[in-house]
């Protein structure tokens, strides 16, 4: 009995650094955010208790739902591009050879650049007057006059931003897919070759099923990342035109900091966090079902 209790304390001691980390950096901020969401607080004046008013207001706030709808649209467009594109790149480069290794390195390099930096880079590339994109398209005769890519038309801005994010992020999924493909036992591939399976049959009936868990993992990460998109929109469009490209997190930022409505921003964050949690749970359930 005494030994069991002692083992328990030892276990707790081993766990305590991780527990402390989670308490300080996850639990406390979450509790604090929930507390803030029940107050009006501008940073300039002391917090004032308002109960669930901020939540009521969030559900009546048209711009919040416009932003949420836009974020979903962005997620629905970019996720298949990242998954399918990343998977195709992985299929092309999975087998080791100098050229394939070089290709993997080139495609993966933008992943190590900060999203803010890459957004600034693309902001310049898409510049109406000086940008590389317009210059090339004009020189090739594709365009007759410069196009204003960012901040004028919501769909055009969205596509420009998606292009920049795909360039930045696609290498991440590709590397995970390459790892999963390379982990498939070689005898499975060899057996399928002996059985006369075509390349397409091997990809669809062997490679894909055996890497499905990685596909679902990358999808989950991509969906969460896209639902939390902020930097690229803040830098490249600032929500323009007319807040049509303001993502949910951008709207939370806008209320929390420039408008100094920390309480309302916290309530919006809670709504967003719960929504993303719901997405994640659904996706995990689907993952489990497909696995079983």
């Amino acid at each position: 009995m005494r030994r069991g209790r002692r083992n328990g304390w030892v276990g707790l001691a081993y766990l305590s650094p991780a527990l402390l980390f989670v308490l300080i950096f996850t639990v406390y901020p979450l509790v604090r955010m929930a507390w803030m969401s029940l107050h009006n607080w501008s940073l300039l004046t002391p917090p004032r208790w308002v109960g669930f008013d901020n939540y009521t207001r969030a559900f009546d706030d048209r711009q919040f739902w416009v932003s949420f709808g836009f974020t979903l649209k962005y997620t629905l467009i970019i996720t298949p591009i990242l998954i399918i594109g990343g998977y195709l790149l992985a299929l092309l480069t999975a087998h080791n050879s100098p050229v394939r290794r070089l290709t993997r390195t080139v495609v993966f390099t933008p992943v190590v650049i900060g999203l803010g930096v890459s957004s600034l880079l693309w902001y310049w590339l898409f510049s109406t007057d000086f940008g590389f994109v317009n210059t090339v398209l004009l020189d090739l005769g594709v365009l007759k006059e410069p196009v204003v890519w960012l901040g004028v038309d919501a769909d055009r801005s969205n596509l420009a931003i998606i292009a920049s994010v795909v360039w930045k992020v696609i290498g991440f999924g590709m590397v995970l897919f390459v790892g999963a493909i390379q982990a498939i036992p070689s005898d499975v591939n060899e057996a399928s070759l002996v059985d006369g399976a075509s390349y397409r049959q091997r990809v669809t009936r062997i490679v894909l099923p055996l890497t499905l868990r990685t596909v679902l993992l990358v999808t989950l990460l991509s969906v969460i990342g896209s639902l939390l998109a902020f930097d690229q929109f803040y830098i490249m469009t600032a929500g323009q035109p007319q807040n049509e490209t303001a993502t949910s997190v951008f709207f939370v930022y806008l209320n929390s900091f420039p408008y100094l409505k920390l309480g309302y921003g916290a309530a919006l964050s809670m709504v967003l966090a719960l929504t993303i949690l719901a997405f994640t749970v659904v996706q995990l359930l689907l993952t489990r079902r497909s696995h079983t």
Binding site: V152, A238, G239, Q240, P241, Q242, N243, Y259
Partner: peptide, 20 residues
């Protein structure tokens, strides 16, 4: 700031709709 100067505020939204 929120009424006028914010790039996401009602003043600029009104102007953009009127202009374009």
């Amino acid at each position: 700031f929120e009424q006028i100067n914010s790039p996401q505020g009602p003043w600029l939204q009104m102007l953009q709709k009127a202009y374009y």
